[in-house]
Design a protein around this nucleic acid. Structure first.
Lengths: 224, 224
DNA sequence: CGCCAAGTTGACAAGTCTCAATGTAAGTGG
DNA sequence: CCACTTACATTGAGACTTGTCAACTTGGCG
């Protein structure tokens, strides 16, 4: 986000941020509350979820360094968010952010780009939930999280960090915990991945995972 | 959208729109193509969908009068769209729209509000796909479409218009056609709805549908 | 009026969920 | 620092929802 800003917008923006630490399990946003702040994860990780009329909950996403929280909310929060690993974040009031956006076109554009790529992520998620089997879902999710981790600057040999509980990953994928766990076991047995611990998984064969995730066609016809 | 604009923004905006008719089945946007225009459905209906690496397709939404198409796209379209009923739309180039948005704060804010409510809709969709059984999905979808129809100014006694094919509604709900069809039959047998034709369904008991859709809690505790 | 696409229904198979037990890692207090 | 306790993950067996394949019916359109 920040690297897309021009010098003055960047100065103003950074000066408006309040940094703070957060602990694991700390609640960062509550559904139903009014949305007065936008937060940017700087280190650590968080998850966002949403209730359906007070009953079942659906995990809607995982947030890592660089991700925005609350940017798409209207006047009230429609998703809750909780830290899944300790870290730091930067906050800015929505009021101040929209003031800045009024003054700095480059900030408007950067925000638009961020929001629009968030939207693409949600659409991927929709496809995962609507059109895939358990194995496909897990493979797709691992690849997506892996891509995002590499986009954050980590090399392909760094184990994939999965700080969320299996229950939450299962909810994200629209599966039950045992189903997710079995799928992991099968992928491990097929030697597609190795787990150092529950939170660290090394992808041993991205190509095979991509095949499982239904990306086979792309592999065969590389450019469409 | 338009009623949120101030007088001058409104004039400029409306003057930049090109109106045209579209036929049923007409392709309105193609995934992968560059996104040069934003379209607003004025009459009729359309559906949006998305492929996963050329394989399976997931219907991501249905569009009716007042809905925007292409507003969330980055430089390339990530979803395709096709008319499911003849109608009319208004187009504006993305370039012109962003020019106008630069000039008119009220347009920026209206766009933001529209996009943010679209986002809420997608989040509902996520919850439907991730956490609901077939019956719950169908009930939730019917209620959602019904609410949107009423928001367009139709009374509660007007039959719900379902111009999409059952196949597409099934895909939207992450179900197979036979499952959707069976669910409809069961709802019909329970007298929760009556179908005049495939495209027109009268909801006879919204309360019971809401219960099925997992909104029971809200019914018991009306305000939270 | 007939054709073809679309929707409905049936029988069966398969995948996922549920319930329950076991195993393992993390956190706490002595 | 170790035993204890709790939370979380894995695995198993069986039930049930949904998917699959196929026949049949309906409805729109020429």
């Amino acid at each position: 986000l920040v690297q897309q800003l021009d010098a003055r917008a960047c100065d103003d923006f950074l000066a408006s941020l309040t940094h703070r630490r957060f602990d694991k399990h700390e609640l960062l946003a509550a559904e139903g509350g009014e949305s007065t702040e936008v937060q940017i994860i700087l280190r650590g990780a968080a998850m966002a979820w949403r209730r359906w009329h007070g009953l079942s909950a659906q995990v809607t996403g995982f947030l890592f360094a660089g991700d925005l929280l609350g940017a798409m909310a209207g006047s009230v929060q429609r998703t809750s968010a909780r830290a899944i690993a300790p870290g730091t974040l930067a906050e800015i009031t929505t009021r101040r952010l929209s003031d800045l956006a009024e003054r700095h076109p480059s900030l408007r554009h950067a925000l638009y780009r961020t929001v629009s790529s968030d939207f693409a992520l949600v659409q991927d998620h929709l496809t995962i939930l609507g059109a895939m089997s358990a194995t496909e879902r897990v493979a797709a999710a691992l690849l997506q999280l892996d891509r995002r981790q590499r986009a954050r600057g980590y090399g392909p040999d760094v184990p994939l960090w999965l700080p969320m509980r299996r229950t939450d990953l299962a909810s994200y994928l629209g599966l039950e915990l045992p189903t997710l766990s079995r799928t992991f076991s099968r992928l491990r047995a097929a030697n597609l991945l190795v787990s150092r611990s529950t939170t660290e998984v090394l992808l041993r064969d991205r190509r095979a995972l991509a095949d499982l995730a239904g990306e086979a066609i792309e592999a065969v016809y590389p450019s469409g």
